[in-house]
């Protein structure tokens, strides 16, 4: 299949950046990133600079590959990351626009690669538990209700890709932070520090320049792991009760 790509090229964080148009011949069996690999090999063979994009696992677990494809973070497929999108979803002759995430807290490093270290700093601010857990204990040593465990597990599926920020008109990181807070707060090991954690992570989130959540819920739609916005309600609960200084 023959495709036309309009790709954002930006030499460095300071460069203004612009769209460039490329033609590429792809097979429907390729993944979206493999299609970009093909383009890059061609560019290199012409001694041109390849398009920089981030990727690692290429199986939807590392969270590095977020691209905005025709305006949608991670492309048109529901519940998948860019690396899990295949060219069979496109037709011969299609025009595909590929951009980096647009959010001031995620500055563009080069072309399609953005600096997502703001997320790392939010995790460092509180996305952990302070007890030393030692070797893994027996699975049934601490009984946890199935319902709680399942909710925590669903929240833990967040891969920190940042698509929620890219999807949000306010560039808010609430879905990400709420997933991390919920994942830990729902388990007995993480419950102890739940309120302190929520406060510290929200504080860091604000410092990084992410926007406010105004319940647009575009994040939930674009999230490759289908993290639910009910986690945001949980985060707000933890945060509020922490601010009021009362235990719930």
């Amino acid at each position: 299949m023959k495709l036309t790509l309009k790709i954002w090229r930006q030499k460095s964080p300071k460069d203004k950046g612009r769209f460039e148009t490329y033609k590429v011949e792809a097979s429907p069996h390729m993944s979206f990133l493999e299609m970009l690999d093909v383009l890059n090999e061609e560019l290199i063979s012409k001694k041109e600079e390849p398009v920089t994009f981030e990727h690692d696992c290429r199986e939807g677990i590392c969270g590095t590959c977020g691209l905005v494809i025709n305006g949608q973070p991670h492309g048109p497929n529901k519940g998948t990351a860019t690396c899990q999108l295949h060219m069979r979803f496109y037709k011969d002759g299609d025009i595909i626009v590929i951009e980096p995430y647009r959010a001031s807290a995620f500055p563009v490093l080069k072309d399609l690669a953005v600096d997502r270290s703001a997320f790392d700093r939010i995790i460092q601010a509180g996305g952990y538990i302070s007890v030393s857990t030692g070797a893994p204990q027996d699975g049934n040593a601490i009984p946890i209700e199935k319902d709680q465990a399942a909710k925590s597990f669903d929240a833990a599926a967040c891969i920190g890709c940042g698509a929620c920020v890219a999807a949000c008109p306010n560039a808010s990181a609430m879905l990400f932070v709420s997933a991390k807070v919920s994942h830990l707060a729902l388990l007995p090991q993480g419950k102890v520090e739940a309120q302190r954690r929520a406060q510290a992570m929200v504080r860091q989130m604000d410092e990084e320049g992410f926007g406010m959540c105004s319940n647009v819920t575009a994040c939930e739609v674009e999230c490759p792991k289908e993290i639910s916005v009910t986690n945001i309600a949980r985060l707000n609960r933890e945060y509020l009760s922490a601010s009021l200084g009362s235990e719930v």
Binding site: K11, S12, L43, I44, K47, E48, E49, P50, T52, L109, K110, A113
Partner: peptide, 13 residues
């Protein structure tokens, strides 16, 4: 080998 770009920039190649 051909390595595009420069040595002092972010260069995944």
């Amino acid at each position: 080998v051909f390595i595009p770009g420069s040595m002092n920039d972010y260069n995944p190649e």
